[in-house]
Design a binder for these strands. Structure first.
Lengths: 231, 231
DNA sequence: CTTAGAAACATATCGGCGTTATGTAATACT
DNA sequence: AGTATTACATAACGCCGATATGTTTCTAAG
């Protein structure tokens, strides 16, 4: 019993390259041969390290969920929980737009090289809902939302924002009803449907827009994975 | 100048078979060779008739949009426009669940054999929103919705329902917050966010549930394309 | 009626894909 | 020191979409 040592750079390099290919050139650029070329190795590396393409994709998907979670946890808890909630929506959309292809694999069910989500993968997705549930509870406590099921409210936020983002990525939202406009309206509508009054909702949504840059856009860099190490 | 006549059964047969393969076995079952085998022809048939796999997929997608439109137009206009609106949502979901793989191609951006939507394809999708816009206008006129932009309201309905259906198809909605429960709550929430009061919205949504079977489920059969001709 | 040409296919082939079988070199434990 | 075990390279298999190149069949012109 004594294995040959793996080059410690091989595995993360493959994930990095794969994530870059997926982000920059889309799903069809992700192939074992292309990876082998870019990583200066053979196609076998994918199989020894990940058991196949689907294993590699799963790795990327997990990182995608982690990044989404990181985006959501960067939203601060303030005295205006409805604004916090709106900002969670903005963060969710921001994350999706930053990695459209990955987002499609995570939620759209884009099969991508025979890869399919397991129930455990999906649980990662549902886990991020915890942030929203907590925020909804705070909205109840502040008297802004009708006292109802916080998880149910969270699911409504999720599916509505997810739907808008999906349509946006699919190119379905164009002027004069472009994604930006629909999104802002959607945020307000969601708060109203949860019990907030129209004027308060509008104010909080506007306020969340002001906080957007500081709490979401400037946290954690742009790319999905770490930048290239210094030369 | 005088072409050989095409076997008039070849082209529709290919579309039928392709639609069936997509519906029953998913995207990966859709290949030129599989089609050639099932249709007792050669792979070239796909190229002469559709210019390639993507052309064939586009044909199926167009039929999918037509079917969606048919589902929506089967919703009657009654004295309760909010119930009509809710029933439009139910019809939308019903159509998506009846053809999940096709729905993923139409809206999820599932690439499927290099196929990608054109702007004209997307216009087909947006066209179906006309039904919702009209219904929203009637909700205004009945005093149920706040007098706002009908198209904007329609977009909100669309993205919210679309998002829920997408998450449902992706397997993200499980008990105790399963798709059925989230969907019912979502319908009510949408009406409330558009201006309807909570009790009226609940009544209309419940009413739309009663109309579901007669106006949606029993119209137009199950499959995407016509049934096999009689022997 | 004849015939030329265009369209509808069939056959064969190409390059690329995921995956597997097989070989080889390197390492850590007995 | 020897051996088992792991990391990789090489080569091959069976798919795939696509194309090049016949071959057949029908239509329309002469």
């Amino acid at each position: 019993m004594s294995p040959r040592r793996a080059d410690p750079r091989t595995r993360p390099a493959l994930v990095d390259i794969a994530a870059r290919l997926l982000a920059e050139e889309g799903p069809q650029a992700l192939s074992t041969r292309r990876l082998a070329t870019e990583a200066d190795s053979s196609t076998m590396a994918v199989y020894t390290h990940f058991g196949g393409m689907s294993g590699l994709v799963r790795e990327i998907v997990h990182e995608g969920f982690a990044r989404l979670q990181r985006h959501l946890t960067h939203v601060r808890q303030t005295g205006d929980p409805v604004a916090d909630m709106a900002l969670l929506g903005r963060a969710y959309r921001h994350n999706a737009l930053a990695n459209p292809h990955l987002y499609a694999v995570m939620f759209g069910g884009a099969s991508l090289a025979g890869f399919s989500l397991t129930e455990e993968d999906r649980q990662h997705g549902r886990y991020t809902l915890g942030n929203v549930v907590k925020c909804a509870t705070r909205c109840f406590e502040a008297g802004r939302f009708r006292a109802e099921d916080a998880e149910l409210v969270a699911h409504q936020m999720w599916s509505a924002i997810h739907g808008l983002v999906t349509l946006e990525l699919g190119g379905y939202l164009i002027a004069p009803y472009d994604a930006e406009r629909c999104f802002e309206a959607q945020l307000t509508a969601l708060m109203v449907s949860s019990g907030d009054d129209l004027d308060s909702a509008r104010r909080s949504v506007a306020l969340s827009g002001d906080r957007m840059r500081a709490e979401v856009e400037e946290t954690g860099g742009q790319g999905l994975f770490r930048e290239a190490p210094p030369a």
